[in-house]
């Protein structure tokens, strides 16, 4: 029974971490057809900004989170006005944007490294304490993360599904030309989506670093995990991503427990390859998007 609770708790925590890693990437990739390889670096910067605001500037915890979120919005906008604006109407956008954002990720990661050093820090935005369920210790911070990740996912799904902005984003994703002819200001939508994704990424970064540690390279692993979730859920399917994140969290926790920690990620990769061959449109999705 303890084993079961143990796997359940670490599975839910992993699932929450996946959900946090995925949400911003999935939003931008699904709605703008733009794979943002700098998403991981945005997570990292979010985590560090919260750390710096709380530790160096003495901000209260919550204000640290808000500062990180605000920085995320600014970075998202900077990305649009500095880079994406010049590219997204040209041929070869899909690959060129991957190269550009790889370069951007490299720059941001190394700027963080220069500013804070390679020494791993503890994220101060965290809740102390925990409780026992049967014989398993459960920190409150894990519950916070699970709550925030589900909350952000649900809020994003609601925004996309039930608001005017959400409809405009989906329209832009499905047919840029039709959206323009319906009066959707497509450029502004790009800027808005990137700003929103910056916000989500920064908050996710704070949450993720609160149960791991802050390190300049902390964003790389979530990028790959996010990809795995996007494949399983189907691109741009935010609700599906929520299920997929927790299912895969459980799966990885089980693999780690029974086969050893080092086989967790390889097992996920194998699952993704099978999924890509079996259902290239995602296990939870209708439409074919991954295959040519």
């Amino acid at each position: 029974m303890d084993t079961f609770v143990q796997i359940l708790v670490s599975g839910l925590t992993l699932g929450a971490m996946y959900a946090l890693s995925t949400i911003a990437l999935s939003l931008v990739w699904g709605s703008l057809n733009m794979l943002n390889m700098a998403q991981g670096a945005l997570l990292t910067i979010g985590g560090y900004i919260s750390f710096a605001a709380i530790t160096y500037l003495g901000f209260p915890l919550f204000l640290g989170l808000v500062t990180a979120a605000g920085t995320g919005v600014l970075l998202g906008l900077a990305m649009y006005f500095g880079i994406i604006r010049f590219m997204f109407e040209k041929d070869g956008f899909e690959t060129n944007v991957i190269i550009a954002t790889i370069g951007l990720a490299m720059m941001m990661e190394n700027i963080v490294l220069k500013a804070f050093g390679a020494y791993p820090f503890q994220q101060p935005f965290a809740v102390d304490g925990g409780f026992r369920l049967l014989d398993v210790h459960i920190p409150y911070q894990n519950l916070v993360i699970i709550g925030v990740s589900v909350g952000m996912m649900v809020a994003t799904a609601w925004l996309l599904g039930h608001t005017r902005l959400g409809r405009a984003i989906r329209a832009t994703a499905q047919s840029r030309e039709a959206a323009l002819l319906n009066g959707v200001p497509v450029r502004r939508i790009f800027a808005q989506v990137l700003a929103l994704s910056g916000l989500l990424a920064a908050v996710s970064g704070v949450m993720l670093s609160s149960i791991t540690t802050l390190a300049p390279t902390m964003g790389y692993d979530p990028l790959l995990k996010a990809f795995i979730i996007c494949v399983i859920a189907g691109l741009g399917n935010v609700a599906g991503a929520l299920y997929a994140a927790f299912l895969l969290g459980m799966f990885e926790a089980g693999v780690q427990y029974f086969l050893g920690v080092r086989f967790g990620f390889p097992a996920l990769l194998l699952l993704v390859i099978i999924a890509l061959i079996w259902r290239p449109y995602g296990v939870f999705n209708r439409r074919k998007v991954a295959r040519l």
Binding site: L35, E94, V261, P266, P280, R291
Partner: peptide, 28 residues
């Protein structure tokens, strides 16, 4: 065989994930 029928972005991420898995398996 695993990735050539996929779209560009998927190929990039899948191959990157394969690289990371190989790296992790070696260093662990």
């Amino acid at each position: 065989l695993a990735c050539l029928r996929l779209r560009g972005a998927y190929v990039a991420l899948l191959t990157l994930a394969i690289a990371q898995v190989v790296y992790l398996l070696i260093i662990t």
